[in-house]
């Protein structure tokens, strides 16, 4: 596979991103390496072609934001909002991720090998998010759809005001948010979990070691009796 290298010490990020936004017919199937990212914000955002971008180091905010189709690998840690509003494709963070990782992501797969910060998978809208470590508080807040796998622990208020997203946690949950409850894992959900573990490099992990959480659906309609829940 042809690989093109961009050195952010030598080339402005704006030019790199604009190149990666080029006509898909000329980009599809190609691989790119971004060197010296040095925590720059908005690296490889808005991609929409079948390409593989490898970031050799740490990325700042919104790395791979709004990704479509592309695969982005960050060989370091990522700042806030990595893969925010991703539509499809895959984003793999080999280090840690800061707050709001995978926020509002609609599709695709976000894999974080390390820990992730506050509000991971907030308002998730259909994507799959797998965190190898632990996640901070208020993760999966108002998560609407998609699957969220946590191999470590979860902080406070997990799944607060959750809609139809599914959460799988292997470690401890400090507390559940309003309207989030433990569910019984059915065979279909177990298969979803097993597939995601396999896709994210955790094939040897037993799905039965996870607990599943989701919406109790008691807050789906405004009602005076629910006032205390907010």
């Amino acid at each position: 596979m042809e690989t093109l290298i961009f050195d952010l010490d030598a080339k402005p990020l704006r030019e790199v991103n604009q190149f990666l936004h080029g006509d898909a017919s000329g980009l599809n199937g190609k691989a790119f390496v971004i060197e010296n990212p040095n925590g720059a914000h908005s690296i490889a955002v808005g991609l929409k072609s079948d390409i593989h971008v490898t970031v050799k180091g740490h990325a700042g905010y919104y790395a791979a934001g709004m990704n479509q189709i592309a695969k982005v690998t960050i060989e370091g840690s990522a700042g806030s909002g990595v893969a925010e509003n991703m539509m499809s494709g895959m984003v793999h963070v080999k280090g840690f991720a800061s707050n709001a990782a995978g926020a509002t992501a609609n599709g695709g797969l976000l894999v974080i090998d390390g820990d992730a910060g506050l509000r991971t998978a907030i308002a998730l809208k259909g994507a799959d998010v797998v965190v190898g470590g632990s996640v901070g508080s208020f993760s999966a807040f108002m998560a609407q759809a998609g699957n969220f796998v946590i191999l470590g622990d979860a902080g406070e208020g997990l799944g607060d005001s959750i809609y139809e997203a599914k959460i799988f946690v292997r470690g401890k949950v400090k507390s559940l948010g309003a309207d989030c409850e433990e569910k019984t894992m059915n065979p279909e959900d177990r298969k979803i979990l097993a597939d995601l573990l396999a896709k994210s490099g955790h094939a040897g992990v037993n799905p039965d070691s996870f607990k599943q959480y989701g919406s109790a659906r008691t807050l789906y309609h405004f009602h005076v009796d629910n006032a205390g829940a907010y």
Binding site: S42, Y61, G81, T104
Partner: peptide, 18 residues
């Protein structure tokens, strides 16, 4: 969901521009 405060807003606007 993915930013708080005016400093973050600056980064968010830059992302949308990118």
């Amino acid at each position: 969901p993915d930013w708080t405060g005016p400093d973050d807003l600056e980064i968010k606007i830059a992302e949308i521009r990118e």
